[in-house]
Write a protein that binds this DNA or RNA. Structure first.
Lengths: 292, 292
DNA sequence: TCTAATTGATAACCCATAGTTATTAATTAT
DNA sequence: ATAATTAATAACTATGGGTTATCAATTAGA
């Protein structure tokens, strides 16, 4: 009775929810098992819900517990960020913006954005991390990221999306390939060659678009290799292991022995979008969003 | 030092931030002023930021403190909501019910059920997915599904089953077929025609029953096509690729050029059953089961 | 079928620390 | 000056989080 929920309870709950084992969770928390059991029991009484099902041999989460687990993970992330942000503000910085991006966005869009924001808000700090579409969405939702640069058509509820760059596609060939800017007409000319593509789990819309470019020309590409990094793809092309189709803007910033031939007369475009969470509480976010 | 932030600190901080007066805030919190002062000081040390400016006569928030005040108010709201939501889910008046179904159940049974449950528990959400009998049983057992609408005679141990609808069978013919409600007597009249049936792996009991209807009339149907979707079967019949035998209730909800003739004087019935797992822990399940 | 090992829950004790009272130092009002 | 405020300090108290010891229930192995 009369007890109060504390972050301690949340910490303990998360440990048990992850281990699904009281003794192991207690070990991880450097406390004794009975102490942990009692805290969890107290927590269940305070909340008024059964969080775990213990049947002497197995521990599992109830539906309510499953829900709480996700929420607490979010709450901890948010508190962590808030505390750090408070310390930063205290020291005169105006906070930190955490940005995730697909490798293909770092060439042009992000540097431009950073320069613009920095000019007007020199005290905002940035952290940049290359991540897949999927990981970025997850990180945005759980408040571990403020902005993501992705190639996606749809995002979950509560996440905003805005296209920031539309790019044509180019065919990437080894430097000594017989096709050049004069005799290149369409991709059907390489229909018999092997293709090196971005992995579909890295960016599925990307993968699908490239497949549709080929299908529109009446052939299905023979895919020999897949990779998540543009650099790797170029290396493979350079080594003669296949040809590739990538957004045209990727031709800048790499120093490789391949040639880019922009594919003419096709409707497909590589669209880069920014995503962020509608109710993100980072005060620095607004300063960045104005530039998008 | 090794101290840890707790919600207590947040509560105290908010009181001081609102009162801007340590003694009054302490009074409001029913604790003594020195205790409050010490907790706030500790909090500032943990976070690593000055939150208040005290100059012996006035207390005011720093910029960092101002930021933190807003965030903490939000965090408390979010925690409050989460805790209440968790209790609600535990009691079963919220949450999600995952339902799987054979295509033939979506016409009448499921909509009726959803309306009834929604009326008494508007906060329960549903997710619906069309699946084969086999996949539903698998999903129920592995706790990925709460209810399944199947046509099965037997289910594994631990899975409950209850019939919810008994239906007669109808012969499905192209609109211009010579048989009609007046001259149709029994299925032997179409014994020489080709049949379009549900795939046996989609619902084997279904398949067997249709075979037995024919066998009772002294012939074995020539099966030309099999499909898992009623829509597809009707299309095939409409195109003259065969006749079909399906549960009578399927005649509603499709807009196709076929005619249904209920088969008279046969014992076979298409039985639709609900299945669920005996020890399913989803508390919302009980609220739905009452309507079955 | 018995024993050994492992699980989480209970009970009783201990001690860290939140909260206490008493006091001080600094400021303002009279 | 003096009285009346303020928040901070110091020393003490006691709540309750964490401890050890043990139990009851279950499973694995002999």
């Amino acid at each position: 009775m009369g007890y109060q929920l504390e972050l301690r309870h949340f910490t303990y709950f998360l440990a048990v929810a992850e281990e699904l084992h009281f003794r192991k969770a207690a070990e991880r928390l450097f406390i004794s098992q009975p102490g942990l059991s009692r805290q969890i029991k107290q927590m269940e009484e305070i909340i008024g819900a059964e969080l775990f099902i213990r049947n002497k041999r197995n521990v599992s989460l109830t539906v309510a517990g499953e829900y709480l687990k996700n929420e607490i993970a979010y709450i901890f992330n948010h508190i962590d960020f808030t505390v750090k942000q408070t310390a930063l503000i205290d020291k005169g910085s105006e906070g930190e913006i955490r940005i995730g991006f697909l490798g293909s966005a770092i060439q042009t869009v992000i540097p431009e954005l950073l320069v613009k924001v920095d000019k007007e808000n020199p005290k905002i700090q940035f952290s940049l991390e290359e991540m897949s579409n999927y990981d970025q969405v997850k990180a945005i939702v759980s408040d571990q990221l403020d902005f993501g640069f992705v190639r996606l058509a749809r995002v979950p509820d509560g996440v905003c999306i805005k296209a920031v760059q539309t790019d044509t596609f180019s065919l990437v060939l080894p430097k000594d390939h017989q096709l050049d800017e004069y005799n290149f007409k369409n991709v059907a000319q390489v229909s018999s060659e092997h293709f090196v593509l971005f992995s579909s789990d890295y960016s599925s819309i990307y993968y699908d678009k490239i497949m549709s470019i080929c299908e529109d020309q009446g052939f299905t590409p023979i895919v020999s290799h897949k990779s998540v990094h543009a650099q790797t793809i170029f290396k493979l092309v350079e080594s003669g292991l296949g040809v590739a189709i990538v957004p045209t803007s990727l031709q800048y910033g790499f120093d490789l022995n391949v040639k880019f031939l922009e594919i003419p007369n096709i409707p497909q475009r590589a669209e880069l979008s920014v995503i962020w969470k509608e109710d993100n509480r980072n005060p620095a976010l607004e300063k960045v969003r104005r530039f998008l």
